[in-house]
């Protein structure tokens, strides 16, 4: 007996249009499959209301924040750049940056990272995906890349929106550096964006943390809330002035690395250390998640 050459669908759906045989289109291999799976995951994310809502909030919230702040007499002086929010529009994005590091950043990333693996458990769809010629590693990297894409998108949208809100609603007055010197608008804008960019490494660290919890617990709530709680605990530890060596190893410490950029004589030590720490978290969490996913028996669903 030989392999039937007719596609099953044409043989049965006589009324349907002729179905092109698959052999004409060679299926992608290796890295190509990670790319197809990545596109698949991004399409899926884009179709989710939660993803779109998060991006919309990142886009609009800074404007609301500035308007509300404008109506207040008391300034958030406790937070860095809080006292200057009415003096320069460039202070707004820095104030929000300092504030977001506390729990907003972990929340924003884990909304996707903490759910992207566990949602397949929740819907019982692992078997649907894995029966379609894709390996677990291909799916793993596709999902990880998609989560990292979302993190980067959230950070970019939020940064640009904060900067725009500040400049449009407060103005582009010169910004005072942390050493008290005045920075001209162009330089201030560049430094603000650079400061926001320094949040990317720890944010990717939190993304990996969310992914790991999502894979290990197979539960979206744990994957989403876990990183936020861990982030808060780290903040608390740092706040209580825990041992310095440990403080350096916390994933929230790199969120402060931008202070060095805003000094009259910039220093980059914390940025370098923070990046190392973030990469450490990233590698460790992804390695654990990858191993767990590879070994797992897919029996649910």
């Amino acid at each position: 007996m030989t392999t039937p050459a007719t596609p099953a669908t044409t043989a049965t759906a006589t009324a349907a249009a002729p179905v092109p045989p698959a052999a004409v289109h060679p299926r992608p291999v290796g890295r190509g499959r990670v790319a197809t799976a990545y596109r698949w995951e991004v399409t899926k994310l884009a179709a989710q209301a939660r993803t779109r809502a998060t991006l919309a909030v990142c886009l609009l919230a800074p404007f609301v924040f500035v308007v509300l702040l404008d109506r207040q007499d008391r300034l958030p002086k406790d937070t860095l750049y809080g006292r200057w929010v009415h003096a320069s529009g460039f202070a707004t994005p820095l104030l929000i940056l300092g504030f977001a590091a506390q729990w907003v950043f972990p929340l924003l990333t884990s909304l996707v990272a903490g759910d992207i693996f566990a949602s397949e458990d929740q819907h019982g769809t692992w078997k649907t995906i894995l029966t379609r010629s894709h390996s677990r590693s291909q799916i793993f990297w596709a999902k990880t890349l998609a989560a990292a894409t979302f993190t980067t998108a959230v950070l970019t949208v939020l940064a640009l929106s904060c900067l725009t809100a500040g400049v449009l609603l407060v103005g582009h007055q010169p910004l005072e550096s942390l050493s008290g010197t005045l920075l001209p608008p162009g330089r201030a804008a560049g430094l603000v964006l650079a400061a926001w960019a320094t949040a990317l490494p720890p944010l990717l660290g939190f993304t990996a943390l969310g992914i790991m919890l999502s894979v290990l617990t197979r539960s979206s709530p744990a994957g989403i809330v876990g990183p936020i709680i861990l982030g808060l605990l780290m903040q608390l530890y740092a706040f209580l002035n825990g041992a310095d060596t440990i403080r350096h190893l916390l994933l929230v410490t790199p969120f402060d690395a931008w202070h060095g950029l805003l000094a009259a004589h910039p220093y980059y030590g914390p940025l370098r250390d923070g990046t190392f720490v973030s990469v450490g978290y990233l590698v460790l969490c992804l390695a654990v998640a990858y191993t767990a996913l590879r070994r797992r028996d897919i029996t649910g669903g």
Partner: peptide
């Protein structure tokens, strides 16, 4: 999208 090939063009037929 995951399958690649001509799968997309078969949706209506299947």
């Amino acid at each position: 999208g995951l399958d690649g090939g001509g799968a997309g063009s078969r949706i209506d037929a299947v």
